[in-house]
Amino acid sequence: MIHYWRDYQKEIAEDEFFYVRSCIRQNFFPGAENLFIDILRNKLGKKVFEDADHTTCTGIGYHSDIVPIETTMTVIARQFALMKERGYRNLVISCVTSFGLYSEILDLWKHDPALKTKIEGYLSEATGRSFDEPANMVHASDILYKFRYEIAEQAVNRLVNNETGLPLRVVDHIGCHYAKTFPERGIGGSEFPQVLTGLIKAWGGETVDYPERRHCCGFGFRQYILQSSRGYSISHSRTKLESMMPYEPDLIVANCPGCAMFLDRWQYTLEETDGSVYGPGRTKIPVVTHEELAGLVLGYDPWEIGLQTHQVPVEGLLDKIGIRYDPEKKYADRQGKLIGDTVAVTAIV
């Protein structure tokens, strides 16, 4: 059976989601996941459950050859068990690495049922739990894609330049493990992925189709984990940024927490290293996640959803869209007390 990109569509559940968080996303984009849950519950009226007992999927350890695959499978089987115990069947995964890993494990079990039986034994032995495979398993960006028009109906802001009235030029970056291993599990497949393009178009922007669009962000677990190998990682990010530069993009949106982090943080590192900046007029290009993009469209306060934790300042983007914000409150905590400013974070070695 051969497909081409329009054939890659997937079933996305309507309601009743069991949500699993991402290690990287909750650390580097601390507002994003609460924002996602809030949009689902309060803007779209969906039922979302988050289990306090949920753990990492071990993705970083697994991809760095630290955690053996049987351990990873058992940990993931435990997440399935938590979902079963709470009476949910539709799994929503925040992290693209996790999504890829969950998909890979289900595929391995499908081809080797004895392996699944073995893991069932391990889980039962270690925790006394049992699990069912999810009825529907999607990435969080798939959910936003499914409800993109509902979000557009409630939109306070559109992805349009406030002054010129032209659509914002948005670079969409899809995490490699979203569709490259299993193109049929990604909307639009892996060559012409539609999952973020769909959001961008529905909310008024336009996608930039630049030559290195499919290039890995450079995350490459075992590359960035060792300081001496980080050069490989940043070199790939540079390839991408150089390729998108002539299009003068207004922002980058990524559905993978690692990609969003690297495309954001490495812009700072590249400027510090050799003075390169890639946005129009010697600015850096703001990077947001899919949840943050939805949050901006729906009119959330930028500082409430954590945009002050980004390395590349987002104020230029907010001004372009015409979003009001209080510069004084950028680094204020809930009591209004300043918790730091940009000057304090320049000495990173």
């Binding site: 051969i2 497909h3 081409y4 990109w5 497949g189 892996s190 060559e191 012409f192």
Partner: peptide, 13 residues
């Protein structure tokens, strides 16, 4: 052969 199936070449796009 329908070249659209070789998505990486972008035929039809």
């Amino acid at each position: 052969f329908d070249a659209r199936h070789k998505e990486e070449f972008g035929y039809g796009i």
